[in-house]
Design a protein around this nucleic acid. Structure first.
Lengths: 190, 190, 190, 190
DNA sequence: CATGAATGAGTATTCATTCAT
DNA sequence: GATGAATGAATACTCATTCAT
């Protein structure tokens, strides 16, 4: 699906691309997706031309940022789940995903608004993440730690929703904790 | 409380103002707050000048939209709560708020951001809504239907979060129902 | 040339017209000719509609203001000249015209920029003023107080120029006086 | 004195900048400062974006125009004064300044307003010009060619005023000459 | 490959003037 | 006649994207 491997970049080009991604992630996160591309380029120490050579579109850059975040999150989720029994793994990963996605809703929203078929472009990494979540959920349900009637779509929706909720409680850790308690309590069977 | 009564508008002016608000609500909701003002004016069948006569700023228009939605919601919440015992009233209103705010980022954002730096008129209606929610919550807690350690900020965050979650399940009513079940279950004491 | 006498206005209409002229003079002078017409109407306590009924165009209002100022100036010049011998009369009127026109250049400039044929619309009152100046100049020259080779056009240009010059010395009366001394000295024969 | 040298522009960029300045000078002078920026850009054969890249604001463009004119005038004044004895130098430069500023309200306005609140770059070139004028005046006074009680402010005011006067006599060279005669005669001591 | 200058469609807002009330 | 709501052309400025250097 991802076709032929893209020709290996020259060392400096690769460095620029990486730097651009890092900077864009930082800038989009702290200042919103409306920052002019020029500013991102400047912050990365390159010209706009270079930015557009690597990412043909602002939207493409945003997408790349999201994909990379998703991939990292997927990997970290796998690592985190490895050492724990199903119930604990489920809860730990739930928290991880929520914390990571807090404040990043805007990204995907912007992508969707752009008219891109988000599912198509992110599908691959998104599918991997969903597969991992499905595994965690199934294991937790088998272990009797989560209501058996809960499907993957509901889990995803909950993750997004709880992410939004905790965003609004950024400066009250106790309150955030209570949100998790409520949701984890509600997820238990019966 | 809302200061001097603004001079009563001429019939046609009032009609235009109302139409503008209706159209803006619809357009902002379905297409986002980035729609050109010109488009809103056209959709309302008036010139841009008229729009700016009624709302001196695009932001002012957005604020008026949000305020009106908030006021309606507050009133409807009151009406809905009236006929029910605390536990039921709480749950019914929770659902109402969630359904109404689903898909209206601006709306919920405004609701939750109220503590920050919004304009006076928004602040006022937001405070009224929060007061109503505080009442519902307290009553439900007194009735033993909701964990006593849950504060108003958490309730608001949950409403916003569940609104977001439910948005992602727009076409699966059964799944949406399960989200509510999870949250309501989690909200019960212990 | 000014055609039929315009039908006598109703008392309130006449009052409105006068008030509008007064206010416009004040406002144009203090805040420049770019003030919105709406503001002038408000300051005069009438609606814009009324303003445009009396003066079909912003430009027409400005023109009326200028004409009235010219007429007043012409009359005052006559009065001032009456009681003095030619040389003194000339100098006194020179000063009067300069003081009155200081800071009002903008008016006529705006009119000219508007593409109106200023000469046509103001011709009448302008001609009266020029006639009076011509008389003063001729008398002063006959009395040997002013170089005989100076024409009316130069006198007018000097009046305008000195008006501009003293505008720039608004807060230094001694310096203004020196300007007058220089010009009056230069105007003497030889 | 004018801070760090701005990075040398690329050849084409420099050409565009210069062209923009030339065109703006011409257009502002002949049609006033209200011409749309778009028109200036078109006349210079570039897009608006280019105009705004070089001059971040319409006002900045105007300022650049004025500064450049002032600098040229200052240099030309120096050159002109060099070869003449004080009295002649004074008169020749007086004429030069007047001819150059005739019809350029913005220009003289800027010259005279310099004491007020203009931007730094304008202030700088304006100060240089004023210094030169002060030198010319002092020398002429020392040579006994100009009234010793005349200060720099009056000289500047006179330059501006005579510029305005001469503008009104654009098509009558003999009359213009008489204006100069009057003023130069008036400037002589006693 | 990198650069940053050029482009121009797009956007919020103003204001002279018209016209329904 | 008076009012002020409606109109929409006009204007300064932005920003994603292209392309000459």
């Amino acid at each position: 699906m991802s076709g032929a491997t893209p020709r290996p970049l020259r060392a400096d080009a690769a460095r620029n691309r990486a730097r651009l991604l890092d900077v864009a992630t930082e800038v989009f996160t702290t200042r919103g997706v409306t920052v002019p591309t020029e500013e991102i380029a400047r912050a990365a120490g390159v010209g706009v031309g270079t930015l557009f050579r690597h990412f043909p579109t602002k939207e493409a850059l945003l997408e790349a940022v999201v994909v990379r975040r998703l991939e990292t999150l997927t990997a970290d989720t796998a690592r985190l789940a490895a050492g724990h029994p199903p119930a604990e793994a489920f809860r730990a990963c739930f928290r991880l995903v929520v914390e990571r996605s807090a404040g990043k809703q805007e990204f995907t929203r912007a992508l969707a608004d752009a008219g891109v078929d988000v599912h198509a472009s992110l599908r691959e990494s998104s599918d991997l993440m969903r597969a991992r979540l499905a595994g965690l959920l199934a294991a937790a349900q088998r272990a009797g730690a989560v209501r058996p009637d809960l499907g993957l779509p509901e889990l995803v929706a909950l993750l997004v929703g709880v992410g939004t909720a905790v965003e609004h409680l950024a400066d009250d850790p106790a309150a955030r904790e209570r949100i998790f308690e409520v949701v984890f309590a509600g997820l238990r069977p019966r």
